[in-house]
Amino acid sequence: MLQPYDPDWPIRAARLLTAVQQVLAPLEVAEAFDHIGSTSVPGLAAKAYLDLQVLVRELPEPSVVDDALAAAGFVPAVGARPDSPGVHRDIPRGSQVVPAGVWRKRLFVHDIDGPGAAILHVRLSASPWGRYTVWFRDWLRAHPQARDSYADFKATAAAEHAGDADFDDYTRAKTAFFDRVQEEFEAWGRRT
């Protein structure tokens, strides 16, 4: 499930983000494009799926954004189960209080079973998750001890869920680590 860090991951992420930026440019809604998740943190083992993020002022109509992203090889994700986390909305977390609708999102996949596997999170710019993912990435990059602690936590969770039919319970298990460090990385992110 987890693979050692691959220095090719940020190169692939940059290529995919450039393609996404090009196909979304005519919609004039995107404000930020980021490589997030474990594959964006040098030295951190990860599932070999690149996590990418686009922040938008408003979520475009599904047919419009689906057609645009299809040109870059991304298709809408449906989730492995009806309650798959993070497919249509993020689980509210953190200190910022926002309207419930801010947690809505769209999730897309690219070559999900192939060597170019990537997951694209399309989030509202007002979503705290959009900031948290970048702050968490940057916090792990700046704090090798936290990165290593997260690596150990992920390895344990991956071993516990190695026989699962999908990644949903592994994803849910990782929230225990975020619960433990949310306040710290959020405070660090606000300062920097």
Rank of each mutant, 00 (worst) to 15 (best):
S95V: 04
S84R: 10
P4S: 02
G101Q: 13
A32M: 06
L140Q: 07
V109S: 11
P42T: 15
G73P: 09
L52Q: 04
G79K: 02
Q145P: 00
R191P: 05
W135P: 03
A25H: 14
L107F: 15
D83N: 14
A187H: 10
V65P: 05
E58D: 02
P26T: 13
R147P: 09
E160A: 11
A151F: 11
Q53W: 10
G189K: 09
R106D: 05
F136V: 00
P99E: 14
V97I: 12
G130Q: 01
P128A: 03
Y150Q: 07
L24I: 02
V87K: 14
W9E: 07
D6P: 00
H143E: 13
T156S: 10
R15I: 12
A45L: 06
S127F: 13
D67H: 12
A25L: 03
P99H: 06
G189S: 09
A32P: 00
T175R: 11
D83F: 10
Q22I: 14
G116F: 02
A25P: 10
V75K: 05
R12I: 09
L55N: 03
L52D: 04
Y49T: 08
A159T: 09
W129R: 01
V29L: 10
A126P: 01
G94W: 14
E31D: 05
V20P: 00
Y170N: 05
F185Y: 10
A100M: 08
A157G: 01
